[in-house]
């Protein structure tokens, strides 16, 4: 089956039709999606700014990171589920959209980056002091914040691009 016929099949499926026909589903799912964006972005900004050494520097690095990482992971799950529902409702418009695929690539990149940077702290394998002196951590923390901003822009732009 080609990807276009798969999209056509998905579009005609009862699930897809229901998402389009029941008027409250899409705005509700989008609202939940925005709430989860707030959780993931808020947690990212606070913990990345701690990693960058500009916020809550009197609190231990691993305490701050371990406080926010589970919230980021759980928010990501909510984002994937709500995103999947939106995609199922309009597979033709979403799956053929370049901005959508750019956004997906960025989400995978920034969340991998988030996890890789935090992994030593989450697993208690790192001595926090030597971890903090790693010269790569600060620029990567700033890069993460920047990438999350680009992800948010891409999300809004899916509705305006082909």
């Amino acid at each position: 089956m080609s990807s276009q016929s798969l999209i056509a099949w998905l579009y005609g499926s009862p699930v897809s039709t229901t998402i389009r026909d029941v008027l409250w589903i899409v705005p509700t799912v989008q609202s939940v999606h925005i709430m989860a964006i707030a959780v993931i972005f808020g947690s990212a900004v606070i913990s990345d700014l701690r990693l960058a050494g500009v916020l809550a520097t009197d609190e231990p690095l691993d305490v701050v990171v371990r406080r926010y990482f589970p919230w980021m992971r759980n928010a990501l799950i909510v984002l994937l589920v709500t995103g999947l529902i939106m995609t199922a409702g309009e597979p033709d418009r979403v799956l053929n959209n370049t901005t959508f695929w750019l956004k997906m690539a960025l989400v995978v990149s920034v969340f991998s980056l988030t996890w890789l940077v935090r992994r030593p702290l989450l697993r208690h394998t790192a001595d926090t002091r030597s971890f903090a002196s790693d010269y790569r951590i600060k620029p990567l923390a700033w890069l993460s914040i920047l990438l999350w901003c680009v992800v948010i822009f891409c999300g809004r732009w899916i509705a305006y691009t082909i």
């Binding site: 925005i34 709430m35 964006i37 707030a38 959780v39 972005f41 808020g42 947690s43 900004v45 606070i46 901003c149 948010i152 822009f153 999300g155 809004r156 732009w157 509705a159 305006y160």
Partner: peptide
């Protein structure tokens, strides 16, 4: 303008994310 409105919307969502994110904490 084709660019102005989506740009404003994106900045609005970015602001909401930080407002709600920090308030929720």
């Amino acid at each position: 303008s084709g660019l102005a409105f989506p740009t404003l919307e994106s900045l609005h969502v970015l602001g909401i994310a930080l407002v709600f994110g920090t308030i929720a904490i």
